[in-house]
Amino acid sequence: MITIRNVSKIYPNGFQALRECSTQVEKGEVIVVCGPSGSGKSTLIKCVNGLEDFQQGEILVDGTSVGDPKTNLPRLRSRVGMVFQHFELFPHMSILENLTVAQVKVLGRSQDEATERGHKLLERVGLKAQAPKHPGQLSGGQQQRVAIARALCMDPICMLFDEPTSALDPEMINEVLDVMVELAQEGMTMMCVTHEMGFARKVAHRVVFMDEGRILEDAKKDEFFGGARTDRAKLFLSKILSH
């Protein structure tokens, strides 16, 4: 579904954010990307739907090359759901409008069809009653569940999560993770940048560990948690699992 081959990203100032990264996500697979801050994991996931460009290598999503200038990026992105660290709901729209606007303007669905789909997905994430409210009136956890529903409204072929729980109060993390676990169990293809190792243990098929722009480990979940190969990953795991 997603193939990343030898991708390198170098900023104009010379800083290299990604160094020859390669991995792939099969259909129905859930992979968790982790690593210390500044390791390039967010940059990598943003390259997948072309929000960040890259200078070398190739990324294929469902057979379409993201870096190809001829690729219709808006069309590709409309098929790839993305959830951000800071939710990024559209504050001037009601919750329902947040869910319907792209369905109508991008997919060309009718307003009625989009509204029906929006209500269905709001119900699914347990926020049916919030439809007429605005994002600023919801808690962080609720906003992130809306953001997931907004992405799902587009019937994506895969979902990208960029630290979806990092900006949440601790007590709101689980309500978001529950939605993500459910999604994973339904067979959604997911690439998740997260430090939630409990989530990784529960539903991930593979774990990718990054440091300084490199993919240091790319292993099955059990192998990764059973015994990471590199010292850097061992150190990272010991630090985040120590309490």
């Binding site: 992105r77 409309s78 559209f90 001037h92």
Partner: peptide, 29 residues
């Protein structure tokens, strides 16, 4: 926030659509 533009693009909006539906309504307010 820069994320607003990213969110608009990630939904499949073109850049002009992102301005029209996401950025400008808030900027003008």
């Amino acid at each position: 926030s820069r994320g607003q533009k990213a969110a608009g693009l990630a939904m499949g909006f073109t850049l002009p659509q992102t301005y029209r539906h996401v950025l400008l309504p808030m900027a003008f307010r």
